[in-house]
Computed example of a mutant assay.
Amino acid sequence: MMTKLASTPLVTLAWAVAPVAVQAEECAQEKAVYVDMDNAYELRFEPMGSESSVSNRFKLAVRNTNIVADGIVMRTDDHLRADGRIMFECPEGDVTGADLRACTVWQGMVYASDLKGHIRALPAEGESAADRLFLPALGPSIQKSSLWGKGKATVAPWDVLSLKGCNQ
């Protein structure tokens, strides 16, 4: 009896993890969709469609609201790191540095991880999607931003987002 009970969580864990690994191999990064542990946020990558200093583009939606923030990722010169930025309600056209700082919700390195916890740079467009993303201090940054408050985000996300699916 004890053996059967002890093995049940392992079987359940293996079943829960296996679909994610298959999806990551079959999904290109520009089509990947991620969620935080509480399913309060969804991060959805979009194809770039043109040459640019921006290597990846995404939307961060606050679930159960109409709030959607824009995100970009730019590779460092050595292409080993991915510098990300999430912005909310930024002005259009000719903007100043102060304008950009005011609408920036989060800025930092975007790290990718496999299911074993091996960290690497965010995959480029056309590469297999990462199993997980790590955006250091995402939750605290959102709580201090214009994205936070009544009628907006009221739950801080975890800094790790897991692959949920793939846009077709």
Rank of each mutant, 00 (worst) to 15 (best):
R57H: 00
R57F: 00
F58Y: 02
K59H: 10
K59E: 06
K59I: 00
K59M: 09
L60T: 01
L60Q: 08
L60V: 08
V62S: 14
V62Q: 09
V62C: 08
R63Q: 02
N64K: 15
N64M: 11
N64F: 11
N64P: 02
N64E: 15
T65D: 09
T65V: 10
T65R: 15
T65F: 11
T65M: 14
N66P: 03
N66H: 12
N66T: 07
I67P: 03
I67L: 09
V68F: 12
V68C: 13
V68R: 10
A69Y: 04
D70M: 05
D70L: 07
D70T: 03
G71H: 14
G71F: 14
G71S: 13
G71N: 11
G71D: 10
G71P: 04
G71Y: 12
V73W: 01
V73F: 01
M74W: 00
R75K: 15
R75P: 00
R75S: 04
T76P: 07
T76W: 11
T76G: 09
D78M: 14
D78C: 13
D78E: 15
H79W: 15
H79V: 11
L80D: 11
L80K: 14
L80G: 14
L80A: 15
L80R: 14
L80H: 11
R81C: 12
A82D: 13
D83T: 01
D83E: 04
G84E: 07
R85C: 13
R85N: 14
I86H: 08
I86V: 15
I86Q: 07
F88C: 09
E89W: 09
E89N: 05
E89M: 10
C90W: 13
P91F: 12
P91V: 06
P91S: 13
P91L: 13
P91Y: 15
E92I: 05
E92A: 05
G93A: 06
G93Q: 05
G93F: 10
G93Y: 05
D94N: 06
D94K: 04
V95F: 04
V95N: 00
V95P: 00
V95E: 02
T96N: 07
T96M: 12
T96P: 02
G97Q: 12
G97E: 08
G97H: 08
G97M: 05
L100F: 03
L100Y: 03
L100T: 06
L100W: 07
R101D: 07
R101P: 01
A102Q: 08
A102D: 09
